[in-house]
Amino acid sequence: MTSPQDNQTAKPVCFQDVILRLQSYWAAQGCAVLQPYDMEVGAGTFHPATTLRSLGARPWAAAYVQPSRRPTDGRYGENPNRLQHYYQYQVIIKPSPANLQDLYLGSLKAIGLDPMIHDVRFVEDDWESPTLGAWGLGWEVWCDGMEVSQFTYFQQVGGHDCRPVSGELTYGLERLAMYVLGVEHVMDMPFNDPASAIPMTYGDIFRQAEREYSRWNFEQADTEMLLTHFKNAEAECARILDAADTDSAGRAIPMAHPAYDQAIKASHLFNLLDARGVISVTERQAYIGRVRALAKRCADLFVTTSAATGEPLPAFPAGA
């Protein structure tokens, strides 16, 4: 048996080892280790734990893996590092602590990237998400010339100034792990310990699915249906936001989260339509604008709620 201490000093041996180390590292820094959001999203930022929780004054610290889907990036599992489904590791801390860069560098050490023998650099990269009406300043972090993370101080989300500011770290897990493990093709990367009774590579788990989704994304997805779903999600989002704040029993329950789910859904449907090549350059902006409008309204509502303000949830009226 190796002790956890040994584990931290030895290099990771597989993909999940990298993930587990990040999980325990950020848990040790006091983050709530959350689970992935149970919806299709293009990036970890879409998780309500980041988008919504970066709004308002209530302090927040969370870390999680987020499966992310980018239909246009599908390459039928053939490209060494491009996937339509991949994992991001996301850390979000509000207010951003003064030592966030040091904390981040600690996380690199935890996964076996010692900054004393590697060349770690913070290279300007301003982040913007037109669909979320969000932007921030920060860097892409380079390790030996490779981008391993995105490091952002959120300035605005959903059109609202972030006060206080959240610090957001996003690691592209496959690329990072491939580098740490010295693997050339993502599909060859050991997923669990290669010394296990049943060793599995990333390809054993995902290659077939990558092929299937690539075909569906590029050729098969029913664009009429997707368009209808987009409109439905947009309409439902607006309906939820337009609903009265109080329920049938007179209890004040504004519904920011359910509305935001519909915004996420619309965003992903837009990505699928984009992959199918049915959205022209001029229409693109219009679609992005429609999703942003939804995200903004969700943010408008969320900032008034307890999760943002830090006020206790209002008690239900007696008898309700």
Binding site: P80, N81, P115, M116, I117, H118, D119, R121, C143, D144, G145, M146, Y179
Partner: peptide, 24 residues
């Protein structure tokens, strides 16, 4: 490539990493 650090292995790891990224 211009690194920002002197390392015990005289930049070997850094150069190898950069070579790899360049190859990709």
């Amino acid at each position: 490539t211009v690194a920002n650090i002197e390392t015990p292995d005289h930049g070997e790891t850094i150069l190898k990493g950069n070579q790899r990224v360049l190859a990709a």
